[in-house]
Amino acid sequence: MRSSDILPEMPADGPTPSDLLLQRYMDDELRPAERRELEVRLQTEPELAKQLATMRGLSGVLRDAREEPAPLGVGFAERAWSRFRTEEVVPVRSLHETLRLWTLVAAVLVVVLGAAFWLLESDGPADLTASPKKSEAHKLLEELDTRAESLKMESLDGGTQAPAKRRDARK
């Protein structure tokens, strides 16, 4: 009989309490009282006993495949120590390098941002030619300034000429 005939497919929602109980028994994870209780059941419930046998068979297949690698070469501990002492300084050096790099990046950022701020604040040609809209706005502003100036001059002139005009009108 194949093991699939004994052990049902694993339910989609995980192992059942019975599955876990058998697994704990097999893995020697039950308390003595629980073991004894299950052993009584195993004697009277053949299906449960078969399920356990299948689980043990599978565990046996896995354990038989345990591989013993070739032993580590002589002097492994010395090599590990040497590596430990060599690599110990690496993070410190990396930290210095990282700090130096970030200092450089910060300096570049300060220069770039400072230059950008200066350009935005100034009336330099770069600011006006950067965008046609800006250039038009600038022209409009200049025109408005000119007209405001002329209006101001007219109003000043008007202020001195108005009484004379009023006198002429009375005549």
């Binding site: 093991s3 052990l7 694993m10 995980g14 192992p15 876990l20 697994q23 689980m55 599978l58 896995l62």
Partner: peptide, 15 residues
């Protein structure tokens, strides 16, 4: 526990 059970079940299915 559940991971162990699922691992064994998956191993068994392939085998």
């Amino acid at each position: 526990e559940s991971r162990l059970f699922r691992a064994r079940a998956q191993f068994r299915r392939i085998l």
